[in-house]
Nucleic acid binder design. Structure first.
Lengths: 342, 342
DNA sequence: AAAATCAGCACAACCGGTTGTCTTATTATT
DNA sequence: AATAATAAGACAACCGGTTGTGCTGATTTT
């Protein structure tokens, strides 16, 4: 129990007026005399009076709080999302509540619970890898707390979400490689149960079709995205009799581990084998042999757009619209970024 | 105004009992009969009743909210801090309010104001580069909201803070280079007005003294930490008649830009020149020619320790302790990490 | 001079919980 | 059977603001 802070009641007592007068004086209401207004504002600043949002929002049934739950924060992709979310939230006068699920469903649930009890006006979520039950999100809806999912989307009907469409990026990537003369193009994908993996997988097949290349199951493998997993996947593809001359990886880190492995195996990067990846992390610019291209997924922009979408939903929500709900979703186009040779 | 949620009053009305009975039934109070308890809990779960934290914390004068303000979130150093803070906050049942100042004093002030009005129980701050006035922090103290500063510490008296002591890391760095045979060791520092720069500067001088090397002003330069600034600083040092054989840089990014510049100039890394940096970013492990060593500043741990410190301050704060305030500060030791050759 | 108008402020209800005190009906004690 | 003890729950105040309504005295209107 922290010591109590100055309230309008304290001010009212000292000036021998009622607290409603203080409240109106501070908000410059016309029915309060000039002299009283001046005495109130004067004393308020002397005492360092600060209004208590909770009391205000309590009546308004609004908190101007937005909850954001991400799997991790030390990952640059998610850090960019946070940054985009915060920028928009700040601009629209909302404050951000942050939680990281650490890819643990129970922790995710618990954070949802806490934020719900803090009465956030809405939530932004990138679901954890281990999330299989969506009850906690359904409960939010029952409580009239809108949720916008970002990038990692659950398989639920009737949800708001924003993501980055990878199909076009994958097609650009494959076409780019084909144009460079590659015919045997491998894929190191992420965990099979990821929707992001599924999307890459089907886009990869579509891209091959478009370029009239027959898919070869042996050229497709998965990694659990750990260093060991990435190396194992690389090893598998590079040991093939029909060895790929180019590999597309789930993200930049997979590519970097793969490139590392190649170097140790004296497989020459960009000669014996080329890499194209996803994420387009800035850090790749410092590498001697980065992937020759990477598909940008615009995490910062996803964060921005998701927040704009959420706030719009929050602010247009009215009880009378209860039964004519619509669900917003937005797919940004990904974009292949070809690295300059340097 | 979002539609209203289920309250204990709704439950009370339906069961024709008083709201205090509902409250006590839900918290399993002994003076409520078993039958009533069951009817209440039953109906509560049917209606998806969720307690409103604000009403509870309102009376308790506590929110279990902690505000965290950092200059940026897209920077991995700060992202690690956030991660450490969130982990501890979660474990201790506090929720994190996040804001980024974008190194703008006005935005920092405005975020402090907002969080204060949300009645956070305490705040964690890494001050913005442009912050010169500390009034907004002093006001927090007057409002009995404790603040713990992290890593970027303002020049104020009587504050709580946590930071990472760079002196020992710098001494280790210089000694390491000397042991490798280097005698001419340059320094590319950050902006002069940074306390972090000042600390590196004096530690650098001390380290040279310890190793009986005479400092040479020409070997010391500053960068504004932009790519152009980093390159310009590198150019300056490498153009010297008495050219350094090793350079210590403000952080890894400066080193990477410098290394990049060297490569373009055909200056051979680790032969003609070696680099040691600060921050020890994981990404350097993927480089062909990373700095040979880097001083780890433990941002994740700083976040953790700062949060532990803050929560301790919050929870032991009592009105009667008002005038016997003490100020906590903790300096972690930095640590030189020598990269394995790979 | 009586009635109407209005400025300036007080009073009270409300938001959704918690908690101390009071009431009532039942059971236990002597 | 009369009294004390106890169980179960009602009532009301409180946290710190906002806001609709009511009251009072002064000024204006007729």
């Amino acid at each position: 129990m922290t010591p109590r802070k100055v309230t309008i009641i304290d001010i009212a007592k000292r000036l021998n007026i009622s607290k409603s007068t203080v409240s109106r004086a501070l908000s410059n209401h016309h029915s309060i005399g000039l002299r009283t207004k001046m005495r109130v504002t004067q004393l308020a600043s002397e005492l360092n009076y600060e209004p208590d949002n909770r009391a205000i929002f309590f009546k308004q049934r609004k908190t101007y709080l937005i909850g954001l739950i991400l799997p991790s924060l030390s990952n640059t992709f998610f850090a960019s999302i946070v940054s985009g979310v915060e920028d928009v939230a700040y601009q629209k006068k909302y404050t951000l509540l942050l939680g990281q699920s650490r890819d643990d469903q129970e922790r995710e649930k618990s954070i949802v619970e806490t934020m719900k009890n803090h009465r956030v006006d809405g939530m932004l979520v990138s679901i954890s890898k281990s999330t299989t039950s969506y009850e906690h999100f359904k409960l939010l809806e029952k409580n009239n707390i809108p949720v916008v999912f970002i990038d990692r989307i659950p398989e639920m009907k009737n949800i708001h979400f924003i993501a980055c469409k990878l199909e076009n990026g994958m097609i650009e990537a494959v076409s780019f490689l084909v144009k460079q003369g590659h015919k045997i193009i491998g894929l190191i994908n992420g965990p099979e149960n990821f929707s992001a993996s599924k999307e890459r997988y089907s886009a990869y097949l579509k891209a091959l079709r478009k370029n009239k290349i027959k898919p070869d199951k042996k050229l497709i493998t998965c990694s659990d995205l750990t260093i060991d997993g990435n190396v194992a996947a690389s090893k598998k593809l590079l040991a093939l009799a029909r060895r790929p001359t180019a590999i597309i990886t789930f993200n930049d880190y997979v590519a970097l581990d793969a490139i590392d492995y190649c170097k140790r195996q004296k497989i020459r990067i960009d000669k014996d084998i080329s890499f194209v990846s996803f994420a387009n992390e800035a850090i790749c610019n410092y590498m001697d042999h980065p992937p020759i291209a990477s598909v940008e997924q615009f995490p910062y922009q996803q964060g921005q757009k998701a927040t704009e979408m959420l706030i719009e939903i929050i602010e247009k929500a009215k009880p009378e619209n209860e039964n004519k709900k619509t669900f917003n979703n937005l797919l940004l186009q990904s974009q292949l970024v070809i690295r300059g040779t340097h």
